[in-house]
């Protein structure tokens, strides 16, 4: 048993209270700003207690930034990212741990390499890739002479047909994001801890790999899936760079981008701050609720995903 030191105990509580204040004070002052009108905030001294205009500010912000549509978009995008990433990662992780096939390590390394370069370092070429998805295919047909061949035999100008852009589509907002090396590693790591007996037993019973995946592996993976889903939900909801690059129309925008549009610049009237702060609380509400209610799973998942 370790001795208790009451002085240290008090100091530690004080440190933690200071930490909690450090987190809460900015949120509190933001809430005060969001619950007063711009004129009230311009008074000297500034009000220190929440006012009564939060809902009014929110309504104004909601109309100004078309948040209704933005929330629907964010919800769709987030759900596709969460489900897509988990499904693709489980399949890939299952394939590299439970199958022996030629180039197994090559596939593993190709996925591993994608971990190395975040989107931020290859903005321009990635934009081109999304704006012209069929570009590589056209190039391939040209180089191999297939397009000329098709043109000569059938008279169809195949290159003209192979031109589509994923800018301002849900596919463009989600598809490039759902490949994930981290999640593949997480599942691979977990699959390696599943006892070998289970697979042997399932083979003896005459079950194929797909049946084994659905009946044995998936039920065992539920805690991992849940933890990952929480992290991915926050990740998807808070996406910024991706929708910034790949949406040009306001009806395809996400809640975070809409909120960014509300933040006033140096020359904008300062009562915009009240709208922006009120809207901030609504935009941060869904991920906050998820994190707080599922805290236990979340902290575990984060530490596991980092391993």
């Amino acid at each position: 048993m370790i001795e208790r030191n009451p002085v240290l105990n008090v100091i530690c509580h004080l440190i933690l209270i200071a930490g909690a204040l450090m987190v809460c004070a900015p949120l509190y002052f933001a809430f005060v700003a969001g619950s007063h009108t711009g004129a009230e905030m311009a008074q000297v001294p500034q009000p220190m207690l929440p006012g009564s205009s939060f809902v009014d500010n929110l309504v104004t912000a909601w109309e100004k930034a078309d948040f209704g549509r933005a929330f629907v978009n964010t919800l769709i995008v987030t759900m596709v990212i969460v489900v897509g990433k988990i499904v693709l990662s489980i399949l890939a992780g299952f394939a590299v741990t439970y199958f022996r096939f030629p180039f197994r390590m090559t596939a593993f390394w190709l996925i591993f390499m994608s971990l190395m370069l975040p989107v931020e370092v290859r903005i321009v070429p990635t934009y081109e890739a999304v704006a012209d998805v069929a570009g590589p295919l056209r190039w391939f047909l040209d180089v191999t002479g297939l397009s000329a061949l098709i043109n000569w035999t059938t008279g169809i100008e195949i290159n003209a047909g192979l031109d589509f852009s994923m800018i301002d589509t849900y596919a463009g907002l989600t598809l490039p994001l759902i490949a994930s090396a981290t999640a593949v590693f997480l599942f691979r790591q977990f699959f390696l801890t599943v006892p070998d007996d289970l697979c042997e037993a399932s083979k003896l019973d005459g079950a194929g790999p797909i049946k084994f995946l659905f009946d044995v592996v998936l039920p065992l993976s539920v805690p991992n899936i849940a933890a990952l889903a929480i992290i991915l939900f926050v990740f998807g909801w808070n996406q910024y760079l991706w929708p910034l690059l790949f949406t040009t129309k306001t009806e395809m925008t996400t809640a975070i981008i809409a909120l960014k549009g509300l933040l006033p610049g140096p020359d904008d009237p300062s009562d915009w701050w009240s709208y922006a702060m009120a809207a901030s609380f609504i935009v941060m509400l869904p991920p906050t609720v998820v994190i707080l209610t599922l805290q236990r799973w979340f902290a575990r998942g984060l530490v596991d995903a980092g391993k």
Binding site: L16, G19, A20, V23, C24, P26, L27, F29, A30, A33, V234, W237, N238, Y240, I256, L259, K260, L263, W273, A276, M277, S280, V283, M284, P287, T288, V290, I291, L292, Q295, F298, A299
Partner: peptide
């Protein structure tokens, strides 16, 4: 309480401090 900022988007964190 200390976990809270994890849920908050960087843009919102930036917006609050900018305010």
């Amino acid at each position: 309480v200390l976990l809270l900022p994890y849920a908050i988007a960087p843009v919102i964190s930036g917006g609050i401090w900018a305010y």
